[in-house]
């Protein structure tokens, strides 16, 4: 028996299966980050359950040595919900991608978020269909050329963060496949009781290489990323001299330089995880005009689905007789 009490290391969470993602795929880094995160969560190994749908990312459970369920396209949220309804003690992680979660499984994702089932959703967003060989996805930018859009896609992309907010999510975070902070974000997601959505910008080296380069390129990253932290001013840039400020007389943000035009640190907005409107503003920021918001953008806990469900159980196990005798009965002698 692999005792629940044994202290676990990252490698204890690696399965014996050979990892089959393309060399250089961002998925590898995410897998490592998850394996590094789990030992510190204080959860018995046998209680972890990784559920996925279909797609490159959804191979994930096979590479974990935990319980895992590789399900069908888009339906991971529903299967994961079933697991939690049956046994709320289990620690469920849903692995999904932009096609799986936002296209074929969009309906299930919004209802998962709305119900606030206590589990973590890791949404690997690579803005492309990898497994089916490179078709544009619901998050692909307009004009994306792909086998199904040789003249450029004519669809507007979906924002995972905004969708989540609209669905009533209580935890929305964003990170990058290779980012060091990913483990911190994952830990926060796990701490949060309710559905935690973590959008992970993931590079598909084969079909969409460099799609996030404007954000992730080391040379410019400091100016293109803003790492938000609750209670701290929304500043970024190599010199930490750039900040976000509400535009006077509007509900839009602007990037300002601290020290320029009489702007001081006091003019810079302070991040508040519980502020829904701020979360929407941060989630809507796109490079290059704005830095892309990373970290825990929104976290405002509410009762979870399974908690409320089980609270409705009135008494312990009545006898079956009481069920069978319900309604009007009569005796024949």
């Amino acid at each position: 028996m692999t005792g629940s009490t044994v202290e676990l290391k990252a490698k204890d969470f690696a399965s014996d299966q050979e990892v089959r993602w393309c060399p250089g795929c961002g998925d590898y880094a995410i897998l490592k980050a998850v394996q590094r995160t789990l030992p510190g969560l204080g959860v018995p190994k046998e209680n972890f359950v990784f559920v996925s749908g279909i797609g490159c990312s959804s191979r994930f459970p096979y590479y974990m040595s935990t319980y895992g369920f590789h399900t069908i396209h888009g339906r991971g949220p529903a299967i994961a919900t079933g697991v939690k309804v049956a046994n709320p003690e289990l620690d469920v992680w849903l692995i999904t991608g932009d096609g799986d979660a936002l296209s074929i499984g969009g309906n299930h994702l919004i209802h998962l978020l709305r119900r606030n089932v206590n589990l973590q959703v890791l949404l690997f967003n690579n803005e492309i269909y990898g497994l089916t060989k490179g078709q544009y996805s619901p998050t692909s930018k307009r004009g994306t050329r792909s086998p199904t859009s040789p003249r450029g896609s004519v669809e507007h992309p979906l924002s995972a963060g905004w969708l989540a907010m609209g669905a009533g999510a209580h935890f929305v975070a964003r990170s990058i496949d290779t980012a060091k902070e990913l483990t911190t974000v994952l830990t926060r997601a796990h701490e949060h009781k309710g559905t935690s959505l973590v959008e992970i910008l993931q590079n598909c080296i084969v079909f969409n290489d460099g799609v996030f380069e404007a954000v992730t390129d080391r040379a410019t990253a400091a100016d293109r990323q803003i790492h938000v932290e609750h209670g701290k001013p929304l500043v970024f840039g190599k010199e930490k001299n750039l900040g976000l400020k509400l535009k006077a007389g509007s509900l839009t943000v602007e990037v300002v330089t601290i020290g320029g035009n009489g702007i001081t640190t006091d003019d810079i907005m302070v991040h508040n995880e519980k502020d829904k409107v701020l979360a929407a503003l941060l989630l809507g920021m796109e490079a290059p005009e704005f830095p892309v918001a990373l970290g825990v953008i929104y976290c405002d806990p509410a009762p979870t689905y399974e908690q409320m469900l089980y609270e409705q159980v009135r008494e312990e196990s009545p006898t079956l007789d009481s069920l069978l005798n319900r309604g009007q009965t009569w005796e024949v002698v």
Binding site: R75, A78, G82, V83, V85, A86, H108, H111, S317
Partner: peptide, 26 residues
């Protein structure tokens, strides 16, 4: 619920089947 029955009104037919499958897995 007291008789060991949790019901779940799903968002659609597919989800209903999948919740059942997840529950059986668990």
């Amino acid at each position: 619920k007291e008789y060991g029955v949790m019901t779940f009104q799903a968002e659609d037919e597919i989800a209903a089947a999948c919740v059942a499958i997840g529950a059986s897995f668990a």
